[in-house]
C-alpha cells in the first residue's frame, strides 16, 4: 500500500489539476459572453415554479400535521377549524398561482405548436 499510495495521490492531484484548469477556462469563457443569459432567465422562471411547488408541499404537510394533531387530541376543535381554514386558503392561493404561472407559457407553447404544425405542412 505504501508503494501505491504516493502514485494514487499524484494521479488524483493530476486529474484534479486538469479539472480545475478546465473549469477555470469554462468560467472565463462563460463570463466573457452573454450566452448563458437565456439559460439563467429560464432558470429564474423555473425557480419561481419550484418555489411554489415547495410551498405547496409545505402547506400540504402542515395540513396533514394539524389533522393528525387534532385526531390525537392535541388540538382543540376550534383551533383546528381556524388553522385548517387558514392553511387551506393559503394552499388554494398557491394552487392558483401555480396555474397562473403555467398560463404564461400557454401562449408560447401554442405558438411553438402552431409553428411546428406550419413547418410540417410546408414540408408536405
Amino acid at each position: 500500500m505504501s508503494d501505491v499510495l504516493p502514485w494514487m495521490f499524484i494521479i488524483v492531484a493530476g486529474a484534479a489539476m486538469l479539472v480545475a484548469l478546465g473549469s477555470l477556462w469554462l468560467s472565463l469563457s462563460l463570463g466573457l459572453s452573454d450566452e448563458a443569459l437565456g439559460d439563467v432567465r429560464a432558470q429564474l422562471t423555473s425557480d419561481a415554479r419550484q418555489a411554489l411547488l415547495t410551498e405547496k408541499d409545505a402547506l400540504l404537510q402542515e395540513l396533514r400535521d394539524i389533522a393528525f394533531e387534532h385526531d390525537a387530541g392535541k388540538l382543540s376543535d376550534q383551533d383546528f377549524e381556524e388553522l385548517n381554514k387558514k392553511l387551506r386558503a393559503q394552499a388554494r392561493h398557491v394552487l392558483h398561482e401555480l396555474d397562473e404561472a403555467a398560463e404564461a407559457f400557454r401562449d408560447e407553447a401554442e405558438a411553438l405548436i402552431a409553428k411546428r404544425l406550419g413547418d410540417s405542412e410546408e414540408d408536405a
Partner: peptide, 11 residues
C-alpha cells in the same frame, strides 16, 4: 448581471 452565474459556478 445574472449571465455571470454559470461562470461563478465553474469558478
Amino acid at each position: 448581471r445574472p449571465h455571470l452565474l454559470p461562470s461563478a459556478r465553474w469558478g
